[in-house]
Design a protein around this nucleic acid. Structure first.
Lengths: 293, 293
DNA sequence: GTTAATCATAGACATGGTTTATGACTCCTA
DNA sequence: TAGGAGTCATAAACCATGTCTATGATTAAC
């Protein structure tokens, strides 16, 4: 490998382009002898005279012209690279890939994403949904920059940032209005039809575990696959849904749903942003996290 | 202009390609801290972290991967450039453009060109024919590397190398065999039909000038456009041709033509190789001249 | 727990690039 | 035709940059 100092090619490029060592020196913030020396070095490394020197400046020789054709291309790519990196740095372009659940995207991140998009329209936002283990795998493959999930998570390779706290609760519609002012026990609640999120959900296992700790088995009459359906089924009176209070906010406000008071405190759940401990965040992701945190 | 030291991109390229600063250092004949420092410098110049460092080596970040896509291209071009220059240096490729007259090509250069082609089959040979002023213009435009012409030539921008000496003479065929053993004066010669090369020829003006100096006007009965026709017409007995003895060698030997002895010495003409004084010769041209010189 | 990799850091060092000063040359202009 | 202003080249002093040595921190593997 000949391994010529690439910096010499920059000098050569500018000398060839301007047709003057003096001008090249000016562009490079160097002196003319320095450029002269650099060109001489390149010439001796390549074993060819690259320029004809004359009183008006320099002119490419046959060999110099051939070299220039290649170096011009190389220079173009490097310039493009520098421009691109500047864009990325200025958040004028780039990609922000977030993993999470659809409900967290919709009810928690949406507002931030809108603000982010407005502030940095050049950055493409990609939302990838999956379960927590899937998202951890995606992170480790580099398919996403960060994941938004319910805590706790224990994986030494991950770095966790806490987000908001969410309070899960049971909600019902007007068909069950007799429960509005009561405080129910677990036993009492279990007499009613229960609607839960489908298996593999962190929220679901949290609540069934809580019931089990108190000696009760929480078995749903209906299982659904989305938060929207949980809310919809509860509103239609098909049963009592276990949902995140914050996600039901609209319906709780307009009265189509109400929260049921339990005599047992349902522990809140923490939302967290997980990133790979070893992998530095992209500027786009850094900026997004800083907008939230 | 951000003007980052191009040499840093070489280090970055190898680090990214090998996935290891240590290995990159080995390829660059540097130490690992040096590479580490170079990468850090590049990162701070670009305002982005390019690598995730871990115990096994380094891995490109999102931004690093984007940069790599560009730098890989640039590196490819530079490598191609270096390969090409090595080829040119080794005379494995290139172009040799020679200007001259067809007769000089055929009768003088041909042997050298054959040898050259055999020795350097990778080099494309281009012969451009034209008059001396045309060739000088071609030289100055960079359209040819060297010109082969009759001397003298006076142009301060040109560098002249002497080639062989050619002796012009009058030749005739068997129809004029009575002249074979005579030594003619100019006056006597002028009684016969003369065949000259068409106007603008250096050889022609040399001989007409010589006659004029002696008070005679040499006016041809026939003008032809090539040396071959000069010889052909003389052989057919159409007249006495003024040709270069060396170009007529074959016919002088086989007796179809003979040289006429004049009582005036026709000064020999010198063939020269002209190159631009200011423009360094390509390797291909240097080699060619050295084969002749 | 030990070993052997990795990269990072700090400071000493020296190579190499830069500068200054000057010279040779060419072109243009008065 | 001389003078001036531009070009690039050269040489030597300088110094700053990049390099190395030495060491540390961390991680992975055995």
């Amino acid at each position: 490998m000949s391994m010529i100092n690439y910096e010499l090619y920059k000098v050569f490029y500018l000398a060839a382009k301007t047709g003057s060592l003096t001008q090249a020196a000016r562009l490079l913030y160097l002196t003319q002898p320095s450029v002269s020396h650099a060109i001489k070095q390149l010439e001796s490394s390549l074993g060819a005279t690259l320029f004809a020197r004359n009183a008006k400046g320099v002119e490419l020789t046959q060999e110099g012209a051939i070299l220039y054709a290649y170096i011009e291309q190389a220079h173009t790519f490097i310039t493009l690279a520098e421009d691109k990196m500047a864009e990325l740095s200025n958040l004028e372009s780039g990609e922000l890939r977030i993993g999470g659940s659809d409900s967290l995207f919709k009810h928690y991140l949406l507002a931030y994403l809108e603000a982010y998009r407005l502030a940095h329209p050049g950055i493409a936002i990609r939302l990838i949904h999956g379960t927590t283990p899937e998202l951890i795998a995606s992170l480790k493959e580099g398919a996403i920059d960060l994941g938004v999930v319910r805590l706790p998570i224990s994986d030494t390779q991950l770095e966790i940032n806490r987000g908001i706290e969410l309070q899960d609760c049971f909600v019902a519609g007007s068909q069950f209005s007799e429960l509005k002012d009561q405080t129910l026990s677990m036993e009492q609640l279990l007499r009613y039809p229960i609607i839960l999120f489908s298996r593999n959900s962190r929220a679901r296992s949290a609540i069934t575990d809580l019931f089990r700790e108190h000696g009760h088995e929480l078995t749903p009459q209906i299982e659904v696959g989305s938060v929207d359906l949980l809310l919809e089924f509860a509103r239609k009176g098909l049963g009592i849904s276990f949902v995140t209070r914050e996600f039901a906010a609209r319906h709780l406000e307009d009265g189509t749903l109400f929260a049921i008071k339990l005599d047992v405190k349902v522990p809140p759940s923490q939302v967290g942003f997980m990133t790979l401990r070893n992998m530095p965040l992209s500027k786009a992701a850094q900026q997004f996290l800083s907008m939230i945190g």
